[in-house]
Simulated scan of single mutants.
Amino acid sequence: MNGRTADSVPAALVGGVPVARERVDVVLAMVPARDREVRPEGQARAERQRRRWATQVVVADELARRACAARGLAPPPREAPARPPAVSGTEVADLGSIIAVTLAHSPAARTLLAALEAEQRVPEEAVREYYDRNPDRFLTPEALRRGVDPYGGAEPGDFLPYDAVHDVVVRELRRALGRQAFFDWLDRARADVEYMPGHEHPGDPSHPDHEHRH
């Protein structure tokens, strides 16, 4: 490829600028492989998909760095990780493994997410609607102990007052809106990425062993 050695071939190009494969290797080293496959061909396939997955984490980090620079945000410097980033199963379920690990791995991604979240405005009617639609989330501790059914037979006093939980609901809705804004930003930003062979998105149907799980 243009006279470059195999070692110098990048994992991807972001806006035409190479993203080094060594950054992908760092993510792979941080997140150990899971032994889900026992046959050699299965292990090879899993490792190919793992590299593609790790490339997505690195690309998202690079895109977040650029977005922070464009916004005048200064993420804290990344320190060499002493252990793999802590990612809970809930975070993976809510965000997908790529974004969950990106946020654990990338100070720039966390800084950008915080900025996007701070920009969100939550209408009062959305707060009220959430409170009215989710009575099970606002039972008092006493009502929970008594096993009160929030959808039948509950009394007004069995629920925490709207004013008492208003700010908590606002924070929760703002967090959800911020995450959606982050997803939308990443989808748009990825349009400027070119992946090298072996580093395509795991769900890219152009390679034969693609998969749709993140």
Rank of each mutant, 00 (worst) to 15 (best):
F138L: 07
R171Y: 03
A74W: 07
V24S: 10
R110P: 08
S8A: 15
E119I: 03
E47D: 11
G15F: 11
V19T: 08
V170I: 15
R175G: 12
A70N: 07
G157I: 07
V170Q: 05
P156G: 04
E125Q: 11
R4Q: 11
L112G: 14
A70R: 14
D25T: 06
V58G: 09
R83K: 06
Y131F: 14
R21A: 14
D192N: 04
P84Q: 10
V168T: 10
P123C: 03
V57W: 06
S106A: 01
R174T: 02
R39N: 02
G178F: 06
Y195P: 03
N134P: 01
S97K: 12
E47Q: 12
E117I: 02
A191V: 14
N134I: 01
G72A: 14
W53M: 10
E79K: 11
A82L: 12
E124I: 07
L113K: 11
E155N: 10
A6P: 03
E22W: 06
D149T: 02
E79R: 15
Y151H: 15
Q56L: 07
E47H: 09
L63K: 09
P76Y: 00
A46G: 08
P18K: 02
D158R: 07
H212D: 08
I99E: 12
R188I: 07
E194F: 04
P161R: 15
P75I: 05
L177H: 04
G15N: 06
Y162W: 10
V9Q: 13
Y162R: 15
A189V: 14
H214I: 01
L160I: 10
P18T: 05
P202K: 00
P135S: 09
A80G: 03
D61Y: 02
L173F: 08
H210Q: 04
P81H: 09
R36K: 12
V87K: 06
G15M: 07
V57C: 10
R110I: 09
R39I: 00
R146D: 09
V26E: 15
A115K: 13
E37T: 04
L28G: 11
N134A: 03
H166P: 10
P150D: 07
A46V: 04
Y195M: 15
G42K: 04
P76T: 13
P208A: 08
R110T: 11
V193C: 08
A6D: 08
E37N: 02
E125L: 05
A93T: 12
A80P: 03
P85E: 01
D209L: 10
P40A: 09
M30W: 12
E194I: 12
A33W: 03
R110M: 08
A114P: 05
Q120W: 10
N134C: 09
D25M: 10
L13E: 09
F182P: 00
P161V: 07
T102G: 03
S106C: 13
R121T: 15
P205K: 10
R71C: 07
R71W: 12
G178R: 07
P150L: 04
Q43H: 03
T5P: 09
T111A: 15
V169P: 05
V101N: 03
V168S: 13
Y162C: 01
R48T: 05
P197K: 06
E200P: 10
L139V: 13
P161T: 11
Y130C: 12
R78C: 00
P135F: 08
